[in-house]
């Protein structure tokens, strides 16, 4: 279930990130106005000062949405909505992507072992 993510991290002007379009099948998670995590595809951004780097520091677990929501009731204290949710899950910083059968939980690879133990 656990999979290392080969992602691209893009830090750029918010307006430049707003204008980014990714191909179908590529997942772009907007972590902050100036910050995106792109999974499964390339990204071009119009900002000469942008930081665009391969980022292998994340791992993900794939779930069906219902299964994930049920598990999260025990593990996090905030309300989950469709798309990106960032916050404390089982005491760890995590990102939750809710999109039906393509739902994901993402944590830093450095927390992978600890998260797996807590998630059960």
């Amino acid at each position: 279930m656990l999979e290392p993510l080969e992602a691209t991290r893009v830090i750029a002007r918010p307006a430049a990130l707003d204008a980014v379009r990714v191909s179908p099948g590529t997942l772009l998670m907007r972590l902050a106005l100036d910050d995106a995590l792109v999974i499964g595809g390339d990204v071009q951004v119009d900002d000469p000062f942008a930081i665009v780097v391969p980022d292998s520091g994340w791992v993900a677990w794939r779930f069906g949405e219902d299964q994930l929501r049920e598990a999260l009731v025990r593990l996090c204290a905030f309300e989950i909505h469709a798309g990106l949710n960032q916050g404390m899950v089982a005491g760890l910083p995590a990102k939750i992507w809710i999109d039906g059968d393509r739902s994901l939980v993402i944590v830093a690879a450095a927390y992978a072992a600890e998260f797996e133990e807590r998630f059960r």
Binding site: A32, L33, A77, F78, E79, N85, Q86, G87, M88
Partner: peptide, 9 residues
């Protein structure tokens, strides 16, 4: 950016 959270975060 992320919404309402407990202060622990």
């Amino acid at each position: 950016n992320c919404g309402r959270r407990t202060v622990e975060e």
